[in-house]
Design a binder for these strands. Structure first.
Length: 450
RNA sequence: GGCCCUAUCGUCUAACGGUUAGGACGCCGGCUUUUCAAGCCGUUAAUCCGGGUUCGAUUCCCGGUAGGGUCACCA
């Protein structure tokens, strides 16, 4: 016998990967890797009607995206023979029995298999909650299978854990009340050891209700964050912070106030026994903040790639569009977004069209443009190479602008270049546009004022 | 309703029984900036209530209240 730690994450392909489940998966992953254990991903697909292969695919993809790689993959349905064996054993030992039933709803069977509940007190230690005691008498003889070939949740779940030698069951708190009857089954099946439990609190919405699809749309599924251009690292980081804190020194020196923690750091600092007992409210603002921090830390080339991929066709068709020019605008765009999905919004809205098409600023917005002429002259005298760097460009005009009043000089210049009341600064814009286009636009603005 | 779990700023959270109750996000304010965004600095804000135990409770115990979970031939 080994004492290797074996864990499992057991999603059901009746739905996609919920944000709360993803956090559970993350905690399972962290705990297992910290202990050099084996992490089994088990698809709980015994509900044939509601399990969908496309859901399974999506769950797998989401987990992969998050980087939570498993060591072993099984489907609950692969263990059907073993489930049957367990059921027979229980029946042979008079620990379960076929029971005649009243048909209450559609799909009910006239006969099911019930567990003969010994009706006793069950106590178990939970890594997060401490000792929990239940009196199982009130549970009665619960159903464990529809027939020998159709086990349901409790039986299948316990049988699989026994078969895989699972040592630690880490799952959502909604399973806490399932635990006593599952322990009863472990005992009835003669399991050598019963796993150690850790029940992770739930994730709630701002109304303290369970994060539900009905109220929050697709934003309860991990795949949606992926689609919207959140980074998996940010997602993991945020999920880890929800219910656990790096401030809690797991022994003495692992504590830190720093909340931006890559997987490597999480692995070093995470401590499952320090996970909060209380359910946490999901806070998109903080996720957004973290995501921005992670975007900032990405290499420029990654940002450019995302940007080019997400640039709407309409923008690509603008007369002055080029991938190179879009790349130059990356820093400007990236500081305005929480996630890459917003990039398409910003570009789609036309906020940055001025880079790719000549604007026609209205007279009003140009505010008289008193110094446009002189600005234009200074621009014309500026050597081409100064346009490569906004700071250099700024030097050539700053003195003049300061002398005449910065607002007086710079506002009309910026409007001439962008046509907008709000935009990035004129030097950065001019630098991206280049000398020729800058001159063209300033000249154009002058004509408008005439 | 029964059973179970939980309770520190708006939110996420820290605090061997002794701290001016700390940090982060957001909010608000200021600085910087021609505008916007970003950046920098700062402010505001919490121990659910009532009893114990103790020299001393955020911390331990009990009760209340509130919130959540669960009571399927789903998982």
């Amino acid at each position: 016998m080994t004492n290797k730690i074996i864990t499992r994450f057991a999603p059901s392909p009746t739905g996609l990967l919920h944000i709360g489940s993803a956090r559970t998966a993350l905690f399972v992953y962290l705990f297992t890797r910290q202990n050099n254990g084996k992490y089994i991903l088990r698809m709980e697909d015994t509900d044939k009607e509601r399990s969908k292969p496309e859901n399974e695919k999506e769950i797998l993809e989401s987990l992969k995206w998050l980087g939570l790689e498993h060591d072993e993959f099984i489907r609950q349905s692969d263990n059907l023979d073993y489930h049957k064996e367990c059921l027979k054993k229980l029946i042979d030992n008079n620990l379960a029995y076929f029971s005649k039933e009243e048909i209450i709803k559609e799909g009910d069977r006239a006969e099911v298999i019930r567990f003969r509940n010994p009706g006793k007190k069950i106590a178990f230690k939970d890594l997060i909650h401490g000792e929990i005691v239940f009196d199982t008498t009130e549970l009665g003889d619960f159903v464990i299978a529809k027939d020998l070939d159709t086990p349901i949740f409790h039986l299948a779940n316990v049988a699989d854990d026994i078969k895989s030698g699972v040592t630690h069951v880490i799952r959502g708190e909604d399973h806490i009340s399932n635990t006593p009857r599952q322990i009863l089954l472990f005992e009835a099946l003669g399991a050598l050891t019963i796993p150690i439990y850790a029940h992770i609190p739930l994730i709630l919405d701002s109304d303290r209700a369970k994060l539900s699809k009905r109220k929050h749309g697709a934003f309860v599924w991990i795949s949606e964050y992926r689609k919207n251009g959140y980074l998996p690292e940010a997602m993991n980081n945020y999920l880890a912070l929800l219910g656990w804190s790096p401030q809690a020194a797991n022994n003495n020196e692992a504590g830190t106030d720093d909340e931006i923690l890559f997987m490597e750091e999480l692995l070093k600092r995470f401590d499952i026994s320090k996970v909060q007992k209380k359910s946490a409210i999901f806070d998109l603002e903080k996720l957004n903040w973290l995501n921005r921090e992670y975007i900032k830390r990405q290499p420029q080339s990654e940002k450019i790639k995302e940007l080019i991929n997400r640039c709407p066709a309409r923008v690509r068709e603008l007369p002055l569009y080029s991938d190179d020019k879009l790349s130059l605008a990356v820093p400007l765009l990236v500081e305005r977004i929480n996630n890459y999905g917003e990039l398409s919004d910003i570009l789609g809205r036309g906020d940055f069209d001025f880079f790719f098409t000549t604007p026609h600023p209205n007279k009003e917005l140009l505010r008289g443009g008193t110094f446009l002429r002189q600005t234009l002259d200074l621009i014309k005298e500026t050597p081409n190479e100064n346009f490569a760097d906004p700071e250099e460009l700024k030097k050539t005009l700053w003195g003049f602008a300061t002398e005449k009043g910065r607002g007086e000089v710079l506002w009309p210049m910026r409007v001439a270049l962008t046509g907008q009341a709000k935009s990035p600064d004129p030097f950065t814009v001019a630098s991206i546009l280049g000398k020729e286009e800058t001159i063209k636009r300033l000249t154009h603005a002058e004509q408008i004022l005439l």
